[in-house]
Write a protein that binds this DNA or RNA. Structure first.
Lengths: 340, 340
DNA sequence: TTCCGATGTGGTATCGATGCCACATCGGCA
DNA sequence: TGCCGATGTGGCATCGATACCACATCGGAA
């Protein structure tokens, strides 16, 4: 308990613990790390000595010797977005359960910062990395460095990944609108270069095609990265007389933008417009009417990714796996049959 | 660029870089780290050799030798709460600007996990720690280990800290309600053992006392940790005939609970009840009517904390400082003069 | 010409933990 | 008595980067 700072520097080392416990350094190491044989009374003595001296193992020294740390790198696009925050939460919790700590970096959706973060992870000799990729640069770099890697939510490479069943969820959601009687259904989406967007768009098209409808390119609108920009896009989409009777927003930020745009135009949900969002957010259950949404368990996504990563670390040669997690569906009041 | 794995293990070391560049290890180290003299052409050559070999410095070895890493530990209570996520975002960004990486742990508001995380930080020899403390255990432990430390949002010790001006903000907020004509103003609060809650309560009382009102203990209601529990508490608070005409909810979760409780009872804002929240959240600007709120710049809070921490690391002996950040106020439609 | 300062060399120590090895004890069992 | 297995010792090497030292070089200034 007392803070002892015997030699030059300051921190207690295992050598002092060993001396205090009256054993050798080897034995202390075994007793503390729990590897190899140690008689119970000796283990007790060592542990007590460590406690009394306030000894804390030097993970940098241990990592150097063992050539890997007990740290997992997590790389997300935007912590301020609840989706990523939840994902990081799930990843961190699962990692801690397994005795790992999380090193978290927010790359702001920028490829250069993503690569820089990957570099930092390798430098820190993390045991593995979870990433919601924005380009293939980081993943490629990490693979070249033989770093265990799991992509989450989106996938660029052909390694391990954990994703939502985007296509299927988008299809059934679109079918929900169709079954209500909608025929002009707009899709507001950000980025179709990514698997996430591509799959969601594909699910949307699957449903329309299956219903025998023509695909109208004008109804697929791409919007930017924040709610403000989307609000503008939504206003022009919804302003005309031939506006769609329903909008499917492909993520929570887009949904917010569309919702605000609709408010600006004094459109009433669901009478004037049906709205459904991919990815639930707290506000969707609080506004009136509540917004129907596809729910993604981001926390689980993060946890599963870490789980897969731990398996990968344990067995570096097993074949790559893509884990698909089903999405949920939360029907609320923002969707109903079209007015006319 | 090509991945070279010459010797036994796998990773490229500085020795190989030195050989390829045709210089000594000392010189390579200086060239790459940018410390000490190196002639420009030599630096170029070394950098190029490192690039070609895909060399990445081993931070564990460097940290061991230098007895400190370029990592900052950040310890928050709940990443799923936007306040902490924003705070972590700000901290991470500021840290990265300074060339540090963030090691993030969510302790779930539990003292035991907090202590465990502090232990992990010390083990990793992080350069310093930011914490939103839930007990004094972790902070005390870190101080005993001579770990640079900054407390954020709440403060337990008497070291460095960065906090919101809670008392003043709570006072002016309460005065806002008083000036509208409210006399029975309830305060729904979680925890008054913490400085945050204590200060907010004090600000609330300051305003009432200054207005010459009696303090009614029945109007100060303590609620739990999540919105669901708060909802129940709010319902019993708001059910009676002598219910308060205004509620001041001391954080965003409490506000959500009170809001839901009011909805359950079909109370209309602001006619039947005025509601104001400490800590703005996205939904507050989206519901109708919008919720008046004290705004805290959590991102700035995190950034300032890291800034203070870096100063502390640079100068371990300077006196402790508490940095107070002003809160903002966002008037919306949930507050108006009482009905009768 | 001489000397200086800037630059670079190689070798060695260091950081703290761990792993390994040859060797020492010791109690108990055949 | 002899030998085994369990346990522990103490010394030394290792992980990779960095710090430091005594020396070497070399171009240019005095």
């Amino acid at each position: 308990m007392s803070d002892a700072r015997p030699p030059g520097n300051g921190r207690v080392t295992i050598k002092e613990v060993a001396e205090r416990a009256g054993v050798s350094r080897s034995t202390s190491s075994r007793a503390l790390a729990g590897t190899g044989y140690v008689a119970e009374p000796v283990r007790q003595r060592v542990r007590r000595a460590a406690e009394e001296l306030g000894y804390v193992v030097d993970a940098t020294a241990r990592s150097l010797k063992q050539r890997s740390s007990r740290i997992i790198g997590v790389l997300v696009s935007d912590l301020r977005n609840a989706f990523y925050a939840d994902l990081a939460y799930g990843a961190g919790r699962r990692a801690r359960e397994a005795g790992f700590t999380m090193m978290l970096v927010d790359d702001g959706g920028r490829a250069d910062e993503e690569l820089e973060a990957a570099h930092a992870f390798v430098a820190s000799r993390v045991a593995g990395v979870i990433v919601t990729p924005v380009s293939d640069g980081a993943a490629e770099f990490l693979r070249r460095q033989h770093m265990p890697l799991v992509e989450v939510d989106r996938v660029f490479g052909n390694g391990d990944a954990v994703v939502i069943d985007n296509r299927h969820a988008a299809r059934t959601t679109t079918e929900h609108l169709l079954s209500l009687g909608h025929r002009r259904i707009a899709l507001v989406i950000d980025e179709t270069d990514w698997t996430t967007g591509r799959e969601r768009r594909q699910g949307y098209e699957d449903a329309l095609v299956a219903a025998g409808l023509e695909l109208d390119p004008e109804l697929v609108v791409s919007a930017g990265w924040n709610a403000d920009a989307t609000e503008q896009v939504a206003r022009s989409l919804l302003a005309g007389p031939d506006r769609p009777s329903a909008v499917f927003a492909a993520n929570n930020l887009l949904a917010e933008g569309v919702w605000r745009g609709a408010m600006d135009l004094s459109l009433r949900l669901p009478d004037d417009l049906s709205l459904v969002a991919f990815d639930d957010a707290p506000w969707m259950s609080m506004v009136t009417p509540g917004i129907t949404a596809v729910t993604q368990d981001a926390t689980r996504l993060g946890a599963e990714a870490v789980g897969r990563l731990l398996d990968r670390i344990a067995d570096p040669t097993s074949p790559a796996r893509v884990i698909t997690i089903p999405a949920g569906f939360q029907r609320r009041q923002s969707t109903s049959r079209p007015a006319s």
